[in-house]
Write a protein that binds this DNA or RNA. Structure first.
Lengths: 314, 314
DNA sequence: GTGAAAGCGCTAACAA
DNA sequence: TTGTTAGCGCTTTCAC
């Protein structure tokens, strides 16, 4: 039934060496000179016995585990989080580390830290609000900072390229519900507009939990008092709400009003008109964050980590 | 900067007892008789020093950690997974355990098990495919089994109550992409129909990644050759696709065709007609699964763990 | 009723 | 070049 665990001393015995030697070989300990044939014997013995180091014991000895904890927090389920996690997981695995997730509102709980003594603790919320000053995960590409700020810029740029100057930013109404990222995102959009030489975006607040009529009226009201020709969604959800509201008002999308999503969610191709949105290469962010958490050089971006998914709504 | 860790011997010294006594008191060890005043002294010392046991050391001693690992796998981001996680987390926390998540395709990776020696390993995929035979998480309510099978029943029941007998089940086309749950879900729907005394549901395969026209034609074709009056979605996504397709075909929803979602995703109220769907009380499942994982009595359901969100599409 | 001490599996000084 | 061994912080057996 339950195979007894293979311990380091089993490997040592099989290879005819001491446990210390096994440890040195398997961990490629620097500053140790071990004969190649010994190494080989140890390696083979470990492989044959199916030895895997006991993570707990190792953690106790080293003072911390080879675990990295990422809190996905309020973002759980949205956007490309799964991809980011996959990228981070892959990178960590390549370095012998293990990624574990929490899904708490206020960061990684203290109990988790006490329980696993992680090598590093990360929080997705920090990614979103990061800006030029605080966010070293994002980095720069060709001199441009590449955080969510960059993504906001990419979104507005697509709209500006199509000639739009009066742009509304559709944001969720219950600001608390949107998480800590909303103020940062609004600020990013402001700066992006300034850089693009277009007016500051006006805010279109949408209550996604309320009745559809309220959203229709909110859009109608905005269009009455403002020359807006395009709406940039805080996410695909807000963009979807605007498309539906426009249909109810008899406003043609994209002819009269262009609508663009953000952080592609998956249903953009299902609706009509199909939603143009921004697909963020979340896996790349995940890998970068992992390298930084391990104290490795994150390296340079090889390209902008997002792309516009052009469909019908712009 | 970094406070040195408070260890059990610091508490022991402060309370004037041995480390063994501290351990007994704090863990409420059975079969030990410790004077109340001693207990009190130990408790106070621990509190004053802010002592928290070192999880790694404890795990090494106990042979396994107080961690439970849940793999959210292919479900990450869909439906009410976040709620399920929250419920499970709360229940585990109440018993001194810690929930950690993985997001791997094929279950909890072996490295994770080696790294944290979890008390229990769970996989969301097992919840969905569970049936009367294999799924003890679901349990029974008033004699009825309450797994995803029950939820399928609840979905079809709502449609049947409204007089629908010829019902289509809209499923994702790329079966592999849908994960291992799809065959089980189809089977659940079959059995639910039998129990409701209505014909076996016909399948409407929808390629959610392909062009919208294909979905329109798929729906049109089905309606031509079959007297279907209602569509039950595999999830809200399939239901949304059907609503859009119906609009393109000029088919009125719900007058000519009722459409219902499954496992509410959040945008159901945004679209037109607003989507009737099934809101699964995922937190309740999470708590139950946690209790079972810890070897506790899961107790009885206090009610059916889902409710129909009646909106406009049925 | 409480304490001394062994030992969980591993790593890394230090010895040989 | 390799082996011996202390000890990470805790729980628990056994002795007092």
């Amino acid at each position: 039934m339950n195979e007894p665990r293979v311990r380091i001393r089993d490997v040592a015995r099989a290879a005819g060496v001491s446990t210390a030697t096994v440890s040195y070989v398997l961990n490629e300990a620097p500053g140790q000179t071990i004969r190649p044939e010994t190494r080989e014997r140890v390696r083979r013995a470990a492989a044959e016995l199916g030895y895997a180091p006991h993570g707990i014991a190792r953690s106790l000895r080293e003072g911390r585990s080879r675990i990295v904890v990422l809190n996905t927090g309020v973002f759980a389920g949205g956007g490309r989080v799964a991809e980011l996690v996959a990228g981070m997981d892959a990178e960590l695995r390549e370095h012998g580390f293990t990624l574990l997730l929490t899904s708490a509102a206020g960061g990684v709980p203290a109990e988790v830290v006490d329980a696993v003594a992680p090598r590093a603790v990360l929080d997705l919320a920090d990614f979103a609000v990061g800006d030029e000053r605080a966010d070293d995960v994002s980095g720069f590409v060709a001199g441009d900072h590449v955080g969510f700020a960059y993504q906001s810029y990419a979104q507005l740029q697509h709209l500006a390229e199509r000639g739009h100057r009066a742009i509304a930013l559709a944001v969720p109404a219950g600001r608390a519900a949107a998480g800590p990222a909303l103020p940062a995102r609004i600020e990013h959009a402001r700066r992006a507009a300034a850089r693009l030489g277009i007016p500051e975006p006006v805010l279109l607040e949408l209550d996604l939990d309320g009745p559809r009529d309220a959203r229709r009226d909110a859009l109608g009201g905005l269009l009455d008092r403002s020359p807006v020709t395009a709406v940039a969604g805080y996410s695909d959800d807000e963009a979807l709400a605007v498309i539906v509201a426009a249909a109810e008002l008899g406003i043609e999308v994209p002819a009269r009003l262009a609508v663009m999503g953000f952080d592609e969610r998956g249903y953009g191709g299902l609706i009509r008109p199909a939603l143009t949105t921004l697909r963020i290469d979340a896996a790349a962010y995940g890998r970068r964050a992992a390298r930084i958490a391990l104290g490795l050089d994150p390296g340079e971006w090889t390209g902008a980590p997002s792309s516009v998914v052009e469909r019908e709504s712009t």
